[in-house]
Computed example of a mutant assay.
Amino acid sequence: MDVYVLRNFLAIAEHGNMTHAAEALHISQSALSMQVKRLEGELGKQLFVRHSRHLALTDEGQLLKQRAETIVGLMDKTVAEFHALDELGGGEIRAGCAESHLIGRFARAFASFREDYPRVRIDITSGGTDQVLGLLARDEIDLAIIVEPPHLDRYHFIEVPGTDEWGAVVRADDPLAELGEVTVDDLVGRELHISRQSLTEDLPRWAGPRLGELRFLGHYNLAYNGAVFVREGLGVLLTFRHLIDCHPGSGLYFRPLSPPLRNKMFIVWQKNQVFTPIVQRFVEHLTAVLGRAGHVGLTAEHGDTAGGEVASEKAGRKGGKPAP
């Protein structure tokens, strides 16, 4: 199976039309059609269903598309890495990042790294911890930035200094905006938004056995999208401080959870990872810059509930609306 043919197959799948794909690839339609026939013959499966005006992938075609994207991507990555061997001052660093204001520390480390390597580039993919670790496992990124403890048998890591604080994002006209902090009691009976990962990994540390009393309207991948629903009067968003614009005049308020719930952030890479020279230098730079204040190679405790049991309602929680 030729990578060149796989690239052409992906072009046909993208355009959904043999003629348009051939024009984009600058080859004849007959040559492209012959490649598809040979590919179908090699695999013993039909890859496209031919309609009057377009081509649609069969189930087998969809499977090949997924595999071809991976194969072509790895081929391009391999070529780029070998080119980078002779270009230590440049090259690309690929990172997958969970949402956190602590990403600022990573960005500042990259900025200082560029002082010595001004031609280096950064490619950032945003997603939840499961998503970015999946990319790391498939060698589609060099580093994963996650907000839960890494598995010591799989990863080397740097613990990023600082923590993310959990809270509730609500509209200005929501009764919760009048509170200084939010407890489980305050959220019972409310419709909540939270990421699926945090629902299983983080919220149980805070709500404990009362988790079953909470009702969830929806799940989000990026907190911004959850905030859009909150602005429309649809529920309460549970997320980290600093991710959503809650400045005065924004119409939204952030209220911290009580007892506090916090997460640590980690930069991880696989133990068997083979880096390009520029990525290796960057990891060494990260270790020097963040490792002094953070933790390299040994897992620290992942956040806490800083008060253990869910606290009873504190006296004096109500009474003039606190600042957003």
Results as ranks from 00 to 15, higher is better:
Ala95Val: 14
Ser100Phe: 00
His101Thr: 00
Val120Gly: 02
Ile103Thr: 00
Ile124Gln: 04
Glu99Ile: 04
Ala98Val: 12
Leu133Thr: 14
Val120Asn: 00
Val132Trp: 05
Asp130Gln: 08
Asp139Cys: 05
Ser112Asn: 13
Gly128Asp: 09
Thr125Arg: 14
Ser112Ala: 08
Ala137Tyr: 04
Gly96Phe: 05
Glu92Asn: 05
Asp86Cys: 04
Gly127His: 13
Asp116Ala: 06
His101Tyr: 02
Arg114Lys: 15
Gln131Asn: 10
Asp116Gly: 05
Thr129His: 02
Arg121Ile: 06
Ser126Val: 13
Arg119Met: 13
Leu136Glu: 07
Ile103Ser: 04
Asp139Ile: 01
Val132Tyr: 08
Ser100Asn: 02
Glu115His: 04
Phe110Asn: 00
Glu87Leu: 06
Asp116Pro: 05
Leu102Val: 02
Thr125His: 09
Ala107Trp: 03
Thr125Met: 12
Ile93Tyr: 08
Leu133Ile: 12
Pro118Arg: 05
Ser100Ile: 00
Val120Cys: 05
Leu133Lys: 15
Leu136Val: 08
Gly96Glu: 12
Gly90Asp: 15
Ala95Gln: 14
Arg105Tyr: 10
Asp86Leu: 06
Ala111Gly: 05
Asp116Cys: 06
Arg138Lys: 12
Arg108Cys: 03
Glu99Arg: 14
Phe113Gly: 03
Glu115Met: 12
Ala107Gly: 01
Arg119Val: 09
Thr129Glu: 08
Asp86Glu: 13
Asp130Asn: 15
Ala111Ser: 03
Val120Asp: 01
Glu87Gln: 07
Ala109Glu: 05
Gly134Val: 00
Ser100Arg: 01
Arg94Ser: 09
